[in-house]
Design a protein around this nucleic acid. Sequence first.
DNA 1: ACATCACATAAGTCTGTGCTTATCTGATGC
DNA 2: GCATCAGATAAGCACAGACTTATGTGATGT
Lengths: 104, 104
Amino acid sequence: MESDDIFRALADPTRRSVFEKLAFGAMNASELRRGIAISQPAMSQHLAVLRSAGLVSERRDGRFVNYEVDPEGLVRIGEWLARYRAYWPRRIDDLKALLKDMDQ
Amino acid sequence: MESDDIFRALADPTRRSVFEKLAFGAMNASELRRGIAISQPAMSQHLAVLRSAGLVSERRDGRFVNYEVDPEGLVRIGEWLARYRAYWPRRIDDLKALLKDMDQ
DNA sequence: ACATCACATAAGTCTGTGCTTATCTGATGC
DNA sequence: GCATCAGATAAGCACAGACTTATGTGATGT
């Protein structure tokens, strides 16, 4: 159970905002830097952390590297969350059916 | 959006194992220490972090303090996760219905 | 009142980690 | 070949955070 890498990766606000940007579609490292005040090496290091946590995946394209959200990481968060289904408020009870699917 | 506190709190493996223990039911701080090699102040500090992240809530009972899972925190993780619904694998498509509920 | 318990808080130490600058690798275009 | 670009890696620094020991606080029992 490697929830460790995932939550440590998401603990950093910069990494979460990078991840959020990727939710709108794949981007390379330079595009991800636009708007944020962050150096090239810092971005590269953040992406390495997100990648080794299974949250993003990379695809080389010439001298660019395109990053995109890796569903694997999201699923692992969902699985972790599933362990606490007993504590979800009743109004979101539909969750149970979903979580049963994810357990398979 | 206080995802920050939540993910920072869960980034620590000790805190996650404490949280997992609480999934089996409310416990006071001493009971939570059983089995884990952790000092009393350390446990107290971890519980303070979990509490201020909205992941657990406390209820005084004489000189004991009972801690329990706070659904609030779980819901906030679920809401965060909901923003990336587009990236969930199709087989867990039931998620969509659930997430729509949570958005309200 | 006093000792003891359950727990919180304070202050200090030490490790982890996010940043920096500098350099390296590999792909592109002339 | 050579200059340039996108990006990764290295090494050092500075701060955040998880631990320690010591002490504080409030409730319980005699």
